[in-house]
């Protein structure tokens, strides 16, 4: 009896799903190994999907990857079941998506932070170095000691890209400044180790740093906490983290992964889907710095003018921020 009931409900679900598919988007999101609630990248994609659901009333399906072998499996499963678009965040999915997207040419795929050259794939990449440059400018101006810090998660090219942009911003503003750089660890745990993040921040503060920028996911919560405890300033990353310690977080480097996910779903819904590479830089509002009531008192008019100058310079091309990943090296240090 119960089984028959379950079957019936599954059948109606399937019917409903295929009926929806006729006109509406039927989105699915895959979260990378960090997990859905990493307070960073994956969570931003989750928030983007939630926003889509809140506005359209269309639910989305999700899957959290547990191992590398599941990448292809998850993509194929969602495509087979008729989900459209299938959105996945993380460069590690490039090769899996290359395989699966070719098998399902009628399904729209979106990959964030990676590039797949297929007609049905939208690849969204962010110019993290530009956003980091902007917060670097602010950090250099806010610092009294002329020493600022950076705490990264894992020592991978993506995080070096953050660090390199930040250092360039600091040095362009105050050539005599000193930047301390630390990475948290070498395993996936480095993205979720607030205690160690706090220790690194403390040691940087002891060496004289009074503004510390983190690009370390969940670890960064500890960095911001340590900075607030010591009366120094923290800088958040990915989403607006100014609210975590109002008045103690100078700003946040915004990387709008949520917008990218939301746009991918909404574009299918409204029939405006486009494939190809989308570069989200300062000019496209894909990256930037956060300004709200929590940090309004920290950003002086002078700082505001300088960072807006830098922003305009990047957009016009007068300021070229070097991208670490373009040649695996950083001119500033």
């Amino acid at each position: 009896m119960k089984f028959a009931k379950t079957l019936a409900s599954v059948a109606t679900l399937v019917l409903a799903a295929s009926a929806v598919h006729a006109e509406d988007a039927n989105p699915a999101v895959i979260f990378d190994l960090g997990g859905k609630f990493d307070r960073s990248f994956n969570q931003a994609s989750f928030e983007g999907a939630e926003r889509f659901t809140a506005e359209t009333g269309i639910a989305f399906r999700e899957f959290e990857l547990q191992s590398d072998a599941q990448r292809e499996q998850a993509l194929r499963k969602f495509a087979q079941d008729g989900f459209n678009p299938v959105v996945v965040a993380g460069f590690s999915n490039e090769s899996a998506m290359t395989t699966v997207a070719a098998e399902f040419p009628d399904t729209d795929f979106a990959i964030i932070d990676g590039f797949v050259d297929l007609p049905n794939v939208r690849s969204v990449v962010f110019n993290e170095h530009e956003g980091s440059y902007l917060v670097g400018v602010l950090a250099a101006m806010a610092s009294q000691t002329g020493k600022v810090g950076f705490v990264g998660g894992m020592d991978i090219p993506l995080i070096r890209k953050f660090a390199c942009g930040y250092v360039q911003g600091v040095m362009a503003t105050n050539p005599d400044a000193e930047v301390f750089e630390n990475m948290t660890g070498s395993t996936g745990a480095a993205w979720n180790d607030p205690v160690r993040g706090g220790e690194l921040a403390k040691s940087q503060i002891e060496r004289g740093a009074d503004v510390i920028y983190h690009a370390a996911g969940g670890t960064g919560i500890g960095v911001l906490q340590a900075a607030a405890d010591a009366g120094a300033l923290g800088i958040g990353v990915d989403s607006n983290q100014n609210y975590i310690h109002p008045g103690q977080v100078l700003t946040s480097m915004l990387k709008r992964v949520d917008n990218a996910v939301y746009d991918a779903m909404m574009d299918v819904q409204t029939g405006n889907w486009s494939s190809g590479l989308e570069v989200m830089g300062v000019a496209e509002d894909g990256v930037g710095y956060a300004l709200d009531e929590n940090n309004a008192d920290l950003i002086t008019d002078e700082m505001m003018a300088a960072v807006e100058d830098a922003k305009a310079g990047i957009i016009s091309g007068d300021i070229v921020v070097h991208d670490y990943t373009s040649d695996d090296s950083c001119p500033a240090s």
């Binding site: 460069f91 991978i156 090219p157 993506l158 070498s186 395993t187 990943t325 373009s326």
Partner: peptide, 23 residues
């Protein structure tokens, strides 16, 4: 931990495909 640090170092600095983001 030493092993994973060594592997990350090798993948990020030595064995990585130049210009690629992925370690």
């Amino acid at each position: 931990f030493i092993g994973s640090a060594l592997v990350v170092y090798l993948l990020v600095n030595v064995l990585k495909v130049p210009g690629s983001m992925a370690p």
